[in-house]
Nucleic acid binder design. Structure first.
Lengths: 152, 152
DNA sequence: TTTATTTACTGGCATATGCCACTATATAAT
DNA sequence: ATTATATAGTGGCATATGCCAGTAAATAAA
């Protein structure tokens, strides 16, 4: 009977996306474990480094994340001394997100593990396939896609 | 400078996956809002229906979700009377997950909204593309993929 | 300049998800 | 039958993520 043979993930793109996310984050987390960072945290540290000293709002937009959600997620990283929020001098509403020395060091440490995870992923999934998949996913994450979806 | 121009999601498949998940769940949630269900909850109700009366463990495996995580996620749905856990007669450790009449009704109500969301997605992303993407994602969610990743 | 509006962030509450320790069963090994 | 081991769930704790209300500060409007 079809009902039992087909999963929601076979028909619902969102559930397929979340299910794959759970699996992959699990796999990356396992590899990153020795660093004490989860892949989500490593991702944040990496993006904070890449973004220079972006404001919370800017970083939230880049990450396609709710501003307050980002604030919450940063809490453990701030508590552990990897990240700090520096008030902007000109606009006193703004706080800039920066890596501490310890944070930079931690990111660099974990980078080797991430590279290992990424290598394993590409070995299993294919290097070109991986790149194509990221492109597809980044399209979905784009604000232009959200606009199209909402107006459609 | 490359550092600022390239996001983690351009190089890390996991972060690309999570970022796209956040965006898409957001979009689906908005469409489902009138039903009072989040897309994650609708997904669970749908899969519970599809799975007949699977045990928590079976459902967790199907959803590629931690057993206890599934238990937690079901709490609100049980509290609201959409789902119930029925102890198995033969194996007293096992609990079977079932939709209540109210749950079936709720799922059917929300189905129209989900269909709308899915239609919008396919209109923006392409029907064939969507199907291909789900296939890719389901490959990543497969246990065989996890095995390959871990041994790789 | 005084007021209205928009913007950036915070804190509280809720769901999503995972780990670990513990309990209850069931099954295999002796 | 007794003991060892494996399996299914539960409860507590922690992170991930989002909504909403409230505060502070900047900006536009009157």
């Amino acid at each position: 009977m079809t009902k039992e043979d087909i999963g929601v993930w076979d028909v619902c793109t969102n559930s397929a996306l979340r299910r794959a996310s759970r699996q992959l984050s699990q796999l990356y987390d396992d590899v990153l474990a020795p660093s004490g960072l989860k892949i989500t945290q490593f991702t944040l540290l990496s993006q904070i480094w890449r973004s220079g000293d972006a404001s919370l709002k800017t970083l939230a937009d880049l990450m396609v994340m709710d501003l307050s959600a980002l604030g919450h997620t940063l809490k453990p990283l701030i508590r552990d001394g990897y990240v700090e929020l520096v008030p902007d001098r000109s606009d006193r509403r703004v706080k800039r997100v920066q890596l501490t020395k310890l944070g930079v060091q931690k990111q660099e440490d974990a980078l080797a593990l991430w590279t290992e995870a990424q290598a394993r992923f590409e070995k299993s999934y294919g290097k070109a396939q991986s790149k194509a998949l990221r492109k597809d996913l980044n399209l979905i994450a784009a604000s232009s896609f959200a606009d199209a979806f909402r107006s459609g």
